[in-house]
Design a protein around this nucleic acid. Sequence first.
RNA 1: GGCGCUUUCGUCUAGCGGCUAGGACACAUGCCUCUCACGCAUGGAACACGGGUUCGAUUCCCGUAGGCGCUACCA
Length: 505
Amino acid sequence: MTERKVRVRFAPSPTGALHIGGVRTALYNYLFARQHGGELIFRIEDTDSTRFVPGAEEYIIESFRWLGIEFDEGVSFGGNHGPYRQSERRDIYKKYVDQLLADGKAYVAFDTPEELDAKRNEVKNFQYDASTRLGMRNSLSLSDSEVKALLDAGHQYVVRFKVEPDEDVHIDDLIRGDVVINSSILDDKVLYKSADQLPTYHLANIVDDHLMEVTHVIRGEEWLPSAPLHVLLYRAFGWADTMPRFAHLPLLLKPDGKGKLSKRDGDRLGFPVFPLEWHDPKTGEVSSGYRESGYLPEAVLNFLALLGWNPGTEQEIMSLDEMVRLFDITKCSKAGARFDYVKGTWFNHEYILQKSDEEIARHFEVILKENGFDEPIDRIVTVVGLMKGRVNFVKELMPLCRFFFEAPAEYDEKTVKKRWKETSAEDMTRLAAVLEGLDDFSLEHQEEVVTKWIEDNGFHMGNIMNAWRLTLVGEGKGPHMFDISAFLGKEETLRRMYRAIEVLK
RNA sequence: GGCGCUUUCGUCUAGCGGCUAGGACACAUGCCUCUCACGCAUGGAACACGGGUUCGAUUCCCGUAGGCGCUACCA
């Protein structure tokens, strides 16, 4: 077989917000495509018209735009393998369904959903397959004239895949190796529904992957049980020689308890499970997003990449480009990974540290404006430089940094008790006088003069500094004092000191 | 129930027959220090169980148990 250009796809259903697990699947597809110089396709799998949610498709596209995952072709990206929306490919699927029917690889079934339900209630573990299909109403059990009559009368029908029983089907999985499943446990899957004239996932998936020349299918583990069905379909079409390689990824599990990660867990534990805030058009419910929660996209991607894969070294912080270089699909873990959202916040912290003060300042500027502070950007950059190391999220800067822009309205009671001594008012008055006399109010000069003044007078460094901090900040924490006073400037520093002396006495 | 996948510190994981079982998050302690953080250092913490194979199993094989998924005219 000749070497084909690597082509992979991410193919979500527009049934709601993009789940974070889907983001990871897309990321792995992206990394795989890029490291092989291949292409990444964005396909919309909207074959279930009843589950379509307006806005979902746009939401997914916007999510990847924010995250920085770029597609080469697909819905909204163009390309010459379109259309990329399955609902627009009806005619294509019909043609291939007819081919299967003509070849005797599939058959028409007239059983109504009610009849099937009744059957399932009647027979325990009922499965529509080689052992039962002749007892059902379909083109294998009915005569040609009966079938024709039903069709002519306009009866709804489905097309089922005729699975030959008792054959061991092998899937050569990139992550799990050789997986064998016997065809007898597969049922005669519905491939096509006359009601909406659309195929089901299984048929559309195989036809599209083939026509779009997909070489590797990287998807969630939930698809592993139906992988043999897909293999059988490729064979039925005569496409076995160009069948894509499969890689089934482990699932993302709940941070605690049992089961896979769900939206509920995010609500319950207080972390987002969607990249962007999502407004459900049906329920009106609003779900938080990573973007709105203050995560940096690079941090989200880095965090996600390491849930189920690692480069085999001790490096954890990696840019997208580095990940492309280091990624190895065969080194993915096989077992599901608990979603450790606490570690996610640590990644964000690391990326805040890594980003320039200017970049973080631009984010913080927005929050400051929302809080009514219209500060020049260079002042914000200074504050960010002083404070960004203490937070996991940019928005956490606001409560921590308020005092830089606004004099304390009150003085924290506990801190007053602890730091405001008998002589503090007197000491602060003297310190204010020293500062008043400074022409050069730079950090360095203040530090030199004040430190000397403390030593010369035999004061205790901690007493003076902490009392001083109380006057400028209003509480007992914050960066170094000279950073604060230099930022505030002489006038504001003295104003705050005199006010505190007056109030605290 | 059936079928498949899976199983190393609380969590994410490294390990690919012989290691004091390594790292990270979280946690604890200490250092730094004008406070609070950051940072740095140190510490506690794991091979699910039972059989094999082997001179030797965390590592290979088989069971058991647990976990996860699938079992729709959903993807």
